[in-house]
């Protein structure tokens, strides 16, 4: 059926009475790359916690690969959908970086040899191999985030949810995360990214979901959404850097072209400099 995740009229009310989700409808197809943005408190984290059954709907249905999350266990769902949470402190419990990554693999019953191979691979991939014997809690916060990612990716789930992976990462590691997302996507994985890093989104994602106050207020192509003032205001978003520059410049040709990235702006500007752009 091609649906990785299907959300129907999802409401969620926390035990303290806070209504965090108010009628969410959403389909995410297999192999899709989707970014979810919105201000703090919009319900983004609450929503993704429904994807692996950590939270169950107060009302409505969430299906993952066609299975109602209320009718299965978190452990079963976790095998196919991995969530890399934003606060790595909450995720670690092993004494060594190596064991942290090996933990889920052991639980899922992978053979020793496979575990050794996979742990080595992901630790190298995330520049953590030299820290294999260190305690996760001695890492810098950027390194902790990479460790959180490594321990999920080691067991190779079909859907990977990244909750703010670029926070505290320098440009090199952002590049690395970007490359890794690309790689996962090319392998047919479904990627869901929850982020505030709108510049990262425009350079990598073709579907953007905007949440505000427990609702989805926009769902579509980043270019249309990010040049729409009304949505931006409603979602307390600020423009990514390049659209911001275009907006401040008020140059009609560029406003019409709506460049999102450095490369797109460069092409548009070269057009104007060469004289085939629409100077008015």
């Amino acid at each position: 059926m091609g649906e990785a995740i299907e959300v129907r009229n999802l409401w969620y009310i926390y035990p303290n009475g806070v209504v965090a989700l108010k009628g969410i409808n959403l389909e995410i197809r297999l192999g899709e790359k989707v970014a979810i943005v919105g201000p703090n408190g919009a319900g983004k984290s609450t929503l993704i916690k429904h994807f692996n059954g950590l939270l169950k709907p107060t009302k409505g249905v969430v299906r993952v690969f066609g299975v109602d999350t209320r009718k299965t266990t978190v452990a079963t769902l976790a095998r196919r959908i991995g969530i890399v949470f934003q606060n790595p402190y909450h995720q670690f419990f092993s004494e060594k970086v190596w064991d942290e990554v090996a933990f889920a693999l052991k639980n899922f019953g992978f053979p020793e040899e496979t575990i050794r191979h996979r742990v080595t691979k992901v630790l190298r991939l995330f520049d953590l191999y030299d820290y294999a014997d260190r305690s996760p809690f001695t890492l810098s916060s950027g390194e902790m985030r990479r460790l959180a990612m490594a321990s999920i990716l080691a067991y190779d789930p079909d859907i990977i949810v990244f909750d703010e992976p670029t926070v505290g990462q320098d440009r090199f590691h952002k590049e690395k995360i970007r490359e890794y997302i690309k790689l996962l996507s090319s392998q047919g994985k479904t990627i869901i990214l929850v982020t505030h890093d709108i510049d990262f989104v425009v350079e990598e994602f073709d579907r953007l979901i905007v949440m505000s106050e427990g609702r989805i207020i926009a769902d579509g192509a980043p270019r249309e959404i990010l040049y729409n003032e009304e949505i931006l205001t409603k979602a307390s978003l600020i423009l990514p850097q390049i659209p911001r520059l275009v907006k401040y410049s008020e140059i009609p040709f560029l406003l019409k072209h709506k460049p999102l990235t450095e490369d797109e702006l460069l092409i548009a500007v070269l057009g104007i400099l060469r004289g085939d752009g629409g100077r008015c």
Partner: peptide, 30 residues
Amino acid sequence: GVDVPRYIRFFKRISNLAKISRYPISDEEA
């Protein structure tokens, strides 16, 4: 590996095509 603002990176890239007298440090200047 510093996350240099996109507009500075952009102007560096076109600096061989156009003279950049002073690099901007804010959106308005950019």
